[in-house]
Amino acid sequence: MVRVVIGRIVSSLLVVVSSSVLVFVIMYLLPGDPIDSMVNVAATPPEVIASLRHQLGVDKPLPQQLADYFGKLLRGDLGTSLLTSEPVLPKIAAQLPPTLELAAVSLAIALIVGLALGVLSAIHRNGPIDWIARFVGLLGISMPNFWSGILLLLVFSIRLGWFPAMGSDGWRTLALPSLTLGLIGAGFLVRIVRNSMLEVMSEPYIVMLRAKGLTERAVMYRHALRNALIPAITVIGLLAGDMLAGTVVMETVFARQGIGRMISDAILSKDMPVVQGVILFSAVVYVVINLLVDLSYSWIDPRVRLRHRTADTGGAIR
């Protein structure tokens, strides 16, 4: 088991490194230059531009730039913003809390609504709850987040005035964006949980459990749900990533502070170190989430543990 975890961590690091390289190369190949957004190119003498470029290191060949970047990274230095000259790491740290808040609350909404509706709709198949769940599922899948965000904004903030339309302090500003993201996540989750519950409920062991005289509640929540969660966990992992990615749009629609806003601004101005920093940060978050998902698999599903155990011992079956 320990070996499996170490193996996972090693491959996770590989993912982080290669994603930074990939982003670096893509940004390098894109037309335009960070200098464009720093100075008025037409009005600046070419020597000045050249020296600026030299100062920033963008005149070096790509491999050299990459090597410099990773060299600094190993020392914990993510560079400084080209536009504001602030160091990137503290900049990210400062913008992190509102984004994490939004992502976490959205994920919580998605989990609570998605799991509850999914399970209930499977148990009460074709009943009223099932209809609601299927409707939520449909909405979650079909509505783009910027559109449902704007709708919520129009109704609850502009018409009814219940929540502020913008800003990022206090739970009231959190309500609408997290609801927007959370319900989309819930829509995905409802469909998965419902289907996998229905599938588990038709397994022979469910009949067996009933034949043992267990109460319906024990059959459903102790046995069926735990089995149904196994496929749902993959989706929950993806969802956590989605929630984080969704903050980019939500922070723009609801004019919130945060990492999402920061990266979209940085991309537009080709502020390479900031873009790199945020990408690296998100890659780490994704990888950690996936690691947690993998580990929770073996916690919830003994078959995964068994497979790991046989891999460790060189594979003696039984």
Partner: peptide, 15 residues
Amino acid sequence: AMIFQEPMAAFDPVY
């Protein structure tokens, strides 16, 4: 009490 046809499928796999 009842016993079933497919013993492999009649136990909850996660307990």
